[in-house]
């Protein structure tokens, strides 16, 4: 499996990372280098092996559904690039 320019365009779009046209080909090459290297995993027989999803086997803890004091709205909005009247501001979504 190898990544071409169109694939880079597709994954850059999925990743929401803008890319200049002349950066696509070099990135495809870099990604192909990494993929060719990880390809060696196909040598490992994983028939019937369960995938490991966490580092330590532990059941997810449960807690009571009690309300706790969260972070104050003003504190959270203080880091926003643009905020107004208790809201985050984004570019216009609908015309």
């Amino acid at each position: 499996m190898s990544i071409d320019k169109d694939t880079v365009v597709r994954i850059a779009r999925l990743s929401r990372i803008a890319m200049e046209d002349d950066a696509l080909e070099p990135m495809a090459e870099e990604l192909n280098g990494i993929l060719a290297w990880v390809e060696q995993l196909s040598e490992v027989d994983t028939e019937g092996v369960e995938p490991m999803t966490g580092a330590i086997a532990a059941t997810l803890p449960q807690r009571d559904d009690d309300a706790e004091a969260g972070t104050a709205t003003d504190d959270l909005l203080a880091n926003a690039p643009e905020a107004d009247d208790g809201f985050f501001v984004v570019p216009k979504v609908v015309e």
Binding site: R10, L41, V44
Partner: peptide, 30 residues
């Protein structure tokens, strides 16, 4: 960081998930 986000997005994308991500998780078990 951009390179890793792109490769991570690729190995999780439809059609490649099993070949890369799931495979890696199984090798991790071993």
């Amino acid at each position: 960081v951009r390179r890793r986000i792109l490769i991570g997005t690729y190995v999780l994308s439809a059609g490649y998930y099993d070949a890369y991500y799931l495979k890696a998780q199984k090798v991790r078990t071993l």
